[in-house]
Amino acid sequence: MAKKLRTRKHEVVLNRSVGGDAGITVILAIFGLFMFLPMYYTIIQSLKPMDELFYFPPRFYVANPTLDNFKSLFNLMADSWVPFSRYIFNTVLISVGGTFGNLVLSSLSAYALAKIDFPGSKFLFQVIQKSLMINAVVTGLVNFITLSYIGWIDTYLALIIPAWGSTLGLYLMKQFMETNVTTEVLESARLDGASELRTFWSIAMPMVKPAWLTLIIYSFQGLWNMGQTNLIYSEQLKTLNYAISQINAGGIARSGSSAAATVVMMMVPILVFVVSQSNIIETMGSSGMKD
């Protein structure tokens, strides 16, 4: 399955009409522009000097590109009440802590659910599959109450620990293990006397690298883009996304630095995706749901 993705499709004469190809190209181009132009315009805005930002009609190119907006963004950051490095630290700590825990707990469970046939495993996976159907909005209220009983409100733990139980990564990893880790390999390791944990760690895990890379990226992206939440109210514990949205809310006077802030913020997940695209697509190859 995984190998097949990489090989070029071999040339078969299928029923393809020239008209159909042309139509597809035109539709793709229209959709593509719709997707691309706003992103492009964000980048262009961030490079415009002040006078070009307020040019009528607005231009889709920049005559004198400048990095002034990025400079003023960093000045704004330097002036902020809480040092900007603190927001970055918070975001990195939450993203790394949440992702690491989610990776460890999910891989252990995914392996057990995919490769050990124990009573209850089907039921547990059904519940996890159903949980993909509900949005976090539904659980927010009770989680707030739970976290305040534990006493984690306004601590990093309130954001990190719930992220450990996020199900999308586990789901993808379990499906990937099912198709890509053959039971024969595991059986021979077990016959050699390897414990279940050892088989998991030294046989199964190396075989599912694309899946854990995908899990890391998904979890990281989610936590990285997390904005304002009612779980944190101390300014010095807030995230980068929150700080950036404060700059964005600065209105027209800051529209240049606001665009610069957005560019800085979006570049991280986009670059991560560019580097890991083939692994993610490979993981998605087994993402399908078979009831």
């Binding site: 707990l105 252990l108 469970s109 659980t139 209220l141 139980g165």
Partner: peptide, 24 residues
């Protein structure tokens, strides 16, 4: 072993996803 492997995840998952739905 399998139960020990799924336990940590299930604990967090039940606490922050299943409990909220039932409690609400």
């Amino acid at each position: 072993t399998a139960y020990f492997m799924v336990l940590p995840f299930m604990f967090i998952f039940v606490l922050f996803t299943v409990v909220p739905v039932v409690a609400s």
